[in-house]
Amino acid sequence: DHWEIRVGDITIHLKDVDEEIIRWVEEALRNGDDLEEIKRWVEEVLR
């Protein structure tokens, strides 16, 4: 699977990601969370 999350001008590409993570990231972006923080979290989860 390949996911693209778009929020404003930001697009995040994710592969082999659980839908729950996608929802979490979308929510975090909508809440204005720091992008670097989100990326770190996702990388942590995917490890």
Rank of each mutant, 00 (worst) to 15 (best):
I38D: 00
W41H: 11
I22Y: 11
I38T: 02
D1M: 13
R23D: 02
V45E: 14
H13V: 14
V45A: 15
K15D: 09
E43V: 04
D34N: 14
L29D: 00
N31M: 04
V7Y: 11
V42I: 14
E4L: 10
D16Q: 07
E44Y: 02
E27M: 11
L29Y: 04
D18P: 14
D1Q: 11
L46V: 05
I10E: 05
L29G: 01
L14F: 13
R30P: 01
I12V: 12
D9G: 06
D18A: 14
W41E: 02
E43R: 02
W41L: 09
D9P: 06
V25I: 10
H13Q: 10
V25K: 00
K39C: 04
W41C: 15
V25E: 00
E26H: 13
L35A: 07
V17K: 06
I22C: 02
R6S: 10
W41S: 02
E19Q: 10
T11V: 07
D18Q: 09
L14K: 02
V42Y: 06
W24M: 14
K39F: 14
K39P: 01
E44G: 01
K39V: 13
R30H: 11
N31A: 11
E43Q: 08
V45Q: 15
V17H: 07
I12A: 01
I12F: 14
G32N: 07
E26A: 10
V42L: 15
I10M: 09
D1S: 13
D34E: 08
V17F: 08
R47E: 14
I5S: 00
E26F: 12
E27Y: 08
G8M: 06
D16A: 09
I38K: 00
E27Q: 12
I22D: 01
G8K: 02
E20V: 14
E26I: 14
D9I: 13
H13Y: 13
L46M: 07
D33N: 14
E27T: 11
W24Q: 12
R47A: 15
R40A: 12
I10N: 05
L46T: 02
W3F: 09
K15L: 04
I10L: 12
D1E: 12
W41M: 10
V25W: 02
V45Y: 15
R6I: 14
R47W: 08
I10S: 06
V25H: 00
L35V: 11
G32K: 04
W3V: 08
W41K: 08
H13S: 10
E44F: 02
I10D: 04
L29N: 01
D1P: 13
E27G: 07
R30Y: 06
N31V: 05
G8R: 01
V17P: 06
E26C: 13
W24N: 04
R40N: 09
E37M: 10
R6W: 12
A28W: 06
L29R: 01
E27D: 12
V42H: 00
E37K: 12
R47Y: 03
E26S: 12
T11M: 10
D9M: 11
V7M: 05
D34H: 13
N31W: 04
V17N: 03
L46P: 00
L29V: 08
T11C: 01
V45H: 14
H2K: 10
V45M: 15
I21Q: 02
E20S: 08
W41I: 11
E20D: 09
E19W: 15
